[in-house]
Write a protein that binds this DNA or RNA. Sequence first.
DNA 1: ATAAGTCGGTTGGAATTCCAACGAAAGAGG
DNA 2: CCTCTTTCGTTGGAATTCCAACCGACTTAT
Lengths: 219, 219
Amino acid sequence: MKNYLDVLKTVKLFKGIEEADLQPLLSCLAAKSVHFEKGQTVFSSGESIERFGIVLSGQVQVVQDDYYGNRSILAIIDTGNLFGESFACAEMKTLPVSVITTTESELLFIDCHKLAIPCAKACGFHSRLIQNMLNIVSMKNISLTQKIEFTSKRTTREKLLAYLSAEAKKSGGSHFCIPFNRQELADYLSVDRSAMSAELSKLRDDGILRFHKNQFELL
Amino acid sequence: MKNYLDVLKTVKLFKGIEEADLQPLLSCLAAKSVHFEKGQTVFSSGESIERFGIVLSGQVQVVQDDYYGNRSILAIIDTGNLFGESFACAEMKTLPVSVITTTESELLFIDCHKLAIPCAKACGFHSRLIQNMLNIVSMKNISLTQKIEFTSKRTTREKLLAYLSAEAKKSGGSHFCIPFNRQELADYLSVDRSAMSAELSKLRDDGILRFHKNQFELL
DNA sequence: ATAAGTCGGTTGGAATTCCAACGAAAGAGG
DNA sequence: CCTCTTTCGTTGGAATTCCAACCGACTTAT
């Protein structure tokens, strides 16, 4: 088995932890690596999970089946990223989603309680691990809240202005770049691309906005 | 000064911790209680915070000023609840929101790092505290994600069906109650109340739904 | 150079939503 | 009983969004 050290180095949960400390840390956490074939179910909706996963290789999808059985993809998790951490940490009794592999994958599982409870060996990186986990979940929290602020506006124009002004504020000036192309921005704001494009033009004509490609300037 | 024990007992962060352990715990965390007059600024946007707050008495608002200076209320935090925990745990360099008191208030501040790093005295409740915090942030995460799933649907009908089928699934049966009145549900789903009301009627006429007040049944 | 693909702006009609207003029903309080 | 208030359903017209289609600019591959 590969040891996936190059992947583990990039995992945000392990940020600030020395490469040499990774292996002892993983055994301290009783982390288990499991191999999956393509299309297998990793977590099944309805069950209760105490472990979250890290994708060492391959890819998994977080999917949700609604009341009528229609499946929708909530997230695509690539190499180096976590899945299920919110559900595991929230101690949900019944998982509302399923996790399935889209390719042959190697997944690393870590018990949430092992993470929160300092180990007997009093390893120094444990508190760092906890901070990293709090960090990850909190940052996701903030970005979700922000997205809701944008999408809860009623009109496309308001959504755009809310988003763009937040980006302007974040950049500190009136000139800034956005990390989306038009289709991605439309998806992010939950609006129609062409309608959004038209609204952008209208904002430009109204003298509120200037833009070229993904460079914007609020006036 | 009151010791606010009755409030502290209800704080989710301290769930599972004995009443007798609360005082030592707070001193272990170096928690500081501060008195505020009505209308004072607790956290100011732009600054960096390492502490989060708990409302012991009174009320605070989390507000946000956009690029043009328009202020909007993001959250109202009542007695016993936390504020700023996501920002503190995420180690944001610049706070995107401000926190202000709406009444005379007593606020308890706790350093996020103190929470993540086990104390020298190796107090047993510390790991419980960490679990509780992870729990709180993760659960907020899940409910935010869920809300986005509903509101990102394009039509009122789809938003309603997404929400109602999720509630049905949660209840385990086809019959369930919702915790909102019509106006609150409309606000939650970011749609117009009257349009939503009309759509509910249409769903009823289409034989998909039955409802009376806030009792619903999906068919 | 040509062909194919991607990306972004534009347009027009269909569909949907918003908005304001009204009315019915239920509850609270005098 | 009456009044006031709240909640919810209904309606009609205005405003907005969606959708499909098209075009031009640009990039990449053959």
